[in-house]
């Protein structure tokens, strides 16, 4: 009997242990390695970094570490500018996403109940189709002789070709397009739950519809606004595909910088240092996001 309860404890202990172990090995450890390599010197050999870590040589490990790569990051203002520009582009995109996403989510929440699940499915559906393909579709639209120019010229709105591709605007359009479901769904979730009588009560107490929107709807939708914004802002900062395909060579973004350090310059330690830099930029939003999510999960019935 006792033996059986021991095996039972063992099997039930495996439930958290297996995924825990997996994430430890394939998520946490790689992370520490990035951190370590960011502190090592580039070498010409393949792989292109000097392996500073030998299990037998702990003292050597610490003495060989230096912050040279980070010094390089601070000396060359390219990285500083790339970081700033990434944050700026991500922030502007997030604001645009809110402006585009809120009316859609609001419309969905006010639609008759029997249509709502269909609308949600329609918002999610593009997400299931390839990200790369969806960005690719915009190249043909935004090209100087592309479909947007053709359409607008056809309507007589413009006479000269629009040159949007390879500008920051193309990046904004791409990010808003690709991340829209991530903004709309959390907003919809809070707006849909909102009690309509609260708005009626505000109107009844003399508040105009516009004022009621700002004093009642927006504050109550705040959890959704915060979740949606972070859900878009965080990956947007590190975005690579969109600036690479839609943004011109002038569009500086840190994810793209990391990619080119790695693939073009083959400087792995510097790429790791850039990764750490990116992570430092994102630590605060990620922590806030985790808190918001945890609270949302708790308050759910």
């Amino acid at each position: 009997m006792k033996e059986r309860s021991f095996t039972k404890r063992l099997t039930s202990g495996l439930v958290p242990a297996i995924p825990y172990l997996w994430l430890g090995v394939f998520f946490l450890v790689p992370f520490l390695i990035v951190f370590k390599i960011s502190l090592s010197d580039p070498a010409i050999a393949q792989p292109p970094y000097k392996p500073v870590f030998e299990w037998s040589d702990i003292t050597g490990f610490f003495s060989a570490l230096d912050v040279e790569n980070f010094e390089l990051l601070t000396q060359d203002d390219l990285y500083f500018r790339a970081t700033l520009s990434s944050v700026r582009i991500a922030a502007i995109s997030t604001i645009l996403l809110l402006l585009v996403g809120f009316p859609i989510a609001y419309g969905m929440a006010r639609a008759p109940e029997r249509h709502r699940s269909l609308l949600v499915a329609l918002v999610i559906l593009p997400f299931w189709t390839s990200f790369l393909i969806r960005i690719y579709a915009w190249i043909a639209i935004l090209k100087p002789e592309g479909l947007l120019t053709q359409a607008l010229t056809g309507m007589g709105l413009i006479s000269e070709p629009l040159d949007i591709l390879n500008t920051e605007w193309a990046v904004y359009i791409g990010i808003v397009y690709a991340y829209l479901p991530f903004m709309v769904l959390p907003l919809y979730a809070t707006l849909e739950k909102m009690d309509d009588t609260l708005l009626e009560a505000a109107l009844d107490l003399g508040s105009t519809p516009w004022r009621s929107f700002w004093t009642i709807t927006v504050p109550l939708a705040m959890p959704g606004i915060i979740a949606g914004s972070l859900l878009c802002f965080i990956p947007a900062v590190g975005e690579f595909v969109i600036p690479d395909l839609l943004g011109g060579s002038e569009t500086l973004m840190i994810g793209r910088q990391l990619w080119s350090e790695f693939f073009s310059n083959r400087d792995w330690p510097l790429a790791s240092a850039v990764a750490i830099l990116l992570l430092i930029v994102l630590v605060l939003p990620i922590v806030i996001y985790r808190d918001v999510e945890a609270r949302r999960m708790e308050t759910r019935p």
Binding site: D195, T197, L198, A201, A202, D204, L205, I216
Partner: peptide, 10 residues
Amino acid sequence: NMMFQSYALF
């Protein structure tokens, strides 16, 4: 002014 059935307190 109205007192709502659900009270509709903000």
